[in-house]
Write a protein that binds this DNA or RNA. Structure first.
Lengths: 114, 114
DNA sequence: CGCGTATATTCGTACTGTTGAATATAAATG
DNA sequence: CATTTATATTCAACAGTACGAATATACGCG
């Protein structure tokens, strides 16, 4: 399939967003904000299997959002662009606004939360 | 399935990102930045079918990113949170950085683009 | 009410993404 | 070189998403 340059850019833009479109990957990125972290630590922090952590990290690596550096047998992942966290924070702000406007939804969450 | 309050927030955060994870929806949001726009206009600008435009707008509506207002038979969609565009701009900046670092990839795009 | 226009929804299909289990690789260590 | 530890990859099942075509709804108008 042929695609224009502009279309390709929008595709990549969307793929970047897609990398953020999973709760576990969001948690990973915020965790990485505190510094380079081994895969095992991330898996433990998120309460997920090691293979699953590797899979999510592979997505973030593919999209260029993190880099991996080996030290002995352990691999430290590192956040590459702090701006990604800024973007996530902006969206979190939007979410907060939305929930505040929409009382019913907040209440539903409260129900679930207790 | 039981989910904690915090987990639910991250789920919603991810769903917000997911709403942005499609080239056509990104284009729609940028188009809406210029002001309220009827569905038909959006479909035409993006070169997609009307039903497809409605489907994508439904996603944006579900995530609370746009509102719809009827005027006669036409429905005007409106951007609700400008911060969403800021977030998209940040990510576009990240994309630009990434492409500049990675010359090979840029060149591949150039190949495709010509 | 019947018709036209604008938008929404439903449906089938093809594609993509997420997961755990199992297996593979890579490095350190004895 | 065999073993252990940390990470990566593959696989199969399942869930979710995107699309066009067809159909439904909603409004205005005569």
């Amino acid at each position: 399939m042929k695609r224009s340059f502009v279309e390709e850019i929008h595709q990549l833009h969307a793929e970047l967003c897609q990398a953020l479109a999973d709760p576990k990957r969001i948690l990973m990125l915020y965790a990485l904000a505190k510094g380079p972290t081994p895969v095992g630590d991330l898996a433990e922090q998120l309460g997920i299997r090691q293979s699953n952590a590797s899979q999510h990290l592979a997505v973030l690596r593919d999209r260029g959002l993190v880099t991996a550096e080996r030290s002995g047998t352990t691999v430290f992942y590192q956040l590459r662009y702090p701006a990604v966290l800024q973007a996530l924070d902006l969206l979190r702000g939007v979410l907060r606004e939305r929930l505040e406007e929409n009382q019913g939804h907040v209440n539903r969450l409260m129900e679930i939360a207790r």
